[in-house]
Amino acid sequence: METQIEQLRVEALSAIAEASDALALKEARVRYLGKTGSVSLLSEGMKNLSKEERPVMGKLLNELRTAVTAALDEKEGALTAVADAAALASIDTSLPGTAPESGSLHPLTLLVDRAVQIFRRLGFAIADGPDIETEWHCFDALNTPADHPARNEQDTFYLPDGRLLRTHTSSIQIRTMVANPPPIRIIAPGAAYRRDEVDATHLAQFTQMEGLYVAPGVSLADLKGTIEFFFRELFGPGTEIRFRPHFFPFTEPSYEIDLRTEALGGKWMELAGCGMVDPAVFEEVNKQRGDNAYDPEKVSGFAFGFGLDRLAMNLTGISDIRMLTENDLRFLSRFTA
């Protein structure tokens, strides 16, 4: 019997080694370890052995079963690994990936958002106001007299009732101050309108960002620091910023802001207007509020405003500003969020 065991061992291990696929291996398992398999049949013979032989042969049989089982498991593992590898090897990984189509955000949205996030770092809150404005909010309160050229029908869109489409977001300064006492620290992104003939560099509607800070002791140095912080955050620390004295009815002193940065092509670009809030504006606001909350002797402030369309045009490298309102997917899809 010992010989039989040894013979079966050699036969079984060789059969297992030769099994080339999962089916052959399964057959081998049945043939040797099944209920009527060779190992089981050999075990049947145990009952014919002597009492002394039984434990010895039993031990040998157990060893046989263990060895065959181990060989089967090992072979099965090996075959599975081969099959798995084959299954993966057939995949052409050079095919492009597939995913649901992705959308995009408008470049002006991205730009407004960058600006908003920077000013929020400095503690500015957002304010808003209507596009359809009164002459008082848009002009009178901003120290722009009735016969000022900006107010004529050539330059400003009027409604039949005498109100107008705001020509700048500065009207939001007035709305905010009339509604709230100082301190005020706001930015206001929004649309503004001017009766410009639409061409490659002009739109009749444009996107502006307004800023206002009013509190006791606000100075021109604060304005300069804020503007520099903003543009260097937006365009990088190497951005050069130049303030040119200018005139706006609602600020004094007033400046225009020029910028030079690689992001904008390395040329000086006129970008924004700013200044210290004119006391006449505070006086108008006080009159409307019916108090003296904005006493020019007690509070001072700065204001700034800049257009975002020209900037977006420059940053996106388009030569026609109308691209910003034409919603051409070939353009829009470049700005994946």
Binding site: L105, L329, L332, T336
Partner: peptide
């Protein structure tokens, strides 16, 4: 919406 495959448009008010 842009993550869901929509592209953002901006059209004129007038």
């Amino acid at each position: 919406l842009s993550g869901g495959g929509f592209h953002e448009a901006r059209s004129g008010t007038l």
